[in-house]
Amino acid sequence: MNKRRLGSSDLYVSELGFGCMSLAPELGSENEKILKTALEQGINYFDTADLYGFGWNEEFVGKTLKSVRQDIILATKGGNEWNQSKDGWNWNPSKKHIKSAFKDSLKRLQTDYIDLYQLHGGTIDDPMDETIEAFEELVSEGHVRYYGISSIRPNTIKYYAEHSNIQSVMMQYSLLDRRPEELFSYLKEQNISVIARGPVAKGWLSEKVFDKNPEDHYLNHTGSDIQQKVEKAKHILHDKNITHAALQYVLSQPVVATATAGASSVEQLLENIKTFDRSALTKEEIATLNTLFPAEIYETHRA
C-alpha cells in the first residue's frame, strides 16, 4: 500500500489508516483478526484514544500490536476525562491533565513512546499555549515523536497551525461532509497534513446505505436524499462501488495523508482495501461527485 508523508515529519503513513474505535469487546476474537489482517494488507497507521472503551481500546491495541511496534505508526489522543459515574466525560486540555493522561496511555499501550499524540478536540477558549507547552515537553522528553490535533473548528486549527509544531489535523471529511476543504489550501501552505476520519460517513457511503432507514439523518442530509445520490453516483462509477469512490475521493486531495476508516469485521476491512485495486477516479467522476455532494462551510468557530 502506498504511503504518504505526514506534514514535515519523518512519518510515512499508509493511505488507508485503521480507526481503532470500531473495535469492541463484544466482537471477541474478530478484533484480533481485523488488526492482523490490516497489518497483512500493508496498513501501518493505527489510531486510538484514551476515551475509547474506558481505556480498553488502548489496552487491546497495545497488546495485539506489541510484537510489531517498531513497524507501525501508533497514534492516540487525549484531552477528555470520564466523570466518576462514567456516563459522560469532561473536556480538560490543561497541561497537568494532558501529561498525566499521556502516562496512562503509555501504560495501556505497552510502549514507551507514541508516534503521533493528538489533542482530542479543542476550542478557541482553551488555554492553548499551556496545552502546546505540554505537547512540546512530551516531545523534548522523548515520549512523543510528533503531535497534532483532532478538531473541526477553523479558528482553533489556525491558532495551532501558527503557534505550535502540529504535523496533522484530524477532521471528519467525506463526500457528505466537505466542509474541511476550505482549509486545505491553508494547511498545505503550512505543511500540515489532514488525517481524514469518517471517510465513508458511518456506512452512509457504502452499499449498506440501502439498508438504512431513509428517515434517519447524517448531518444535514436525509437518509432518502443520500440513497438517491448514491444511486445516481453508481451509474458513473466504472469499476468502483460507492465505498471505493468515497475513499478515493478523500485521497484525491494531496493534503490528506491518510483516510482513517474503522471496520467491525474482516470482510468490511477487505472491502475498504479493494479500493486500491481499482482505477483512480477520473476528472469527470470527481466533477460529478462534486455536483452530487456539494460542499458547505462551517458557520461557526471562525472569528
Score class of each variant (00 low, 15 high):
Lys212Arg: 15
Arg179His: 05
Pro214Gln: 03
Glu207Arg: 14
Gln228Gly: 15
Phe210Trp: 02
Lys202Val: 13
Gln227Ala: 12
Leu183Trp: 07
Ile195Ala: 03
Arg179Thr: 10
Glu215Ser: 14
Val194Phe: 05
Leu205Asp: 04
Phe184Leu: 05
Ala201Val: 04
Gly223Asp: 07
Glu215Phe: 09
Lys208Tyr: 12
Lys212Gly: 08
Gln190Glu: 13
Glu181Ile: 09
Gly198Asp: 08
Glu182Phe: 02
Asp216Ser: 15
Lys232Glu: 15
Glu182Val: 10
Ile226Glu: 07
Val200Leu: 02
Val194Cys: 05
Asn191Thr: 09
Asp216Leu: 14
Glu189Pro: 01
Thr222Tyr: 05
Arg197His: 06
Arg178Pro: 08
Gly198Met: 05
Ser224Phe: 11
Gly223Cys: 06
Val200His: 00
Lys188Pro: 01
Leu176Pro: 10
Asp225Phe: 15
Trp204Thr: 09
Asn191Phe: 01
Pro180Tyr: 06
Asp225Gln: 14
Asn220Gln: 13
Val209Lys: 00
Tyr218Thr: 04
Lys234Arg: 15
Ser193Met: 10
Lys229Ala: 13
Arg179Leu: 05
Lys188Met: 04
His217Lys: 15
Gly198Ser: 05
Leu176Gly: 08
Lys202Ser: 13
Val200Glu: 00
Glu182Asp: 06
Gln190Ile: 09
Gln228Ser: 15
Asp225Cys: 00
Asn191Ile: 03
Gly223Phe: 09
Gly223Ala: 04
Phe184Cys: 04
Leu176Asp: 07
Val209Leu: 02
Asn191Leu: 08
Lys188Phe: 00
Gln227Leu: 12
Leu183Pro: 08
Lys212Cys: 11
Ser224Lys: 14
Leu219Tyr: 07
Ala196Arg: 00
Gly198Asn: 07
Lys232Phe: 14
Asn220Trp: 11
Asn191Trp: 00
Arg179Trp: 01
Glu181Ala: 04
Phe210Arg: 02
Lys229Glu: 11
Glu182Trp: 02
Leu176Met: 11
Lys212Asp: 07
Asn191Glu: 13
Leu219Gln: 13
Phe184Gln: 03
Val200Cys: 00
Ala201Tyr: 01
Leu176His: 06
Val200Lys: 00
Ser206Tyr: 02
Glu182Gln: 09
Phe184Met: 06
Arg178Met: 10
Gln190Pro: 00
His217Ala: 12
Asn220His: 14
Lys229Phe: 13
Glu181Leu: 09
Pro199His: 00
Leu187Ser: 05
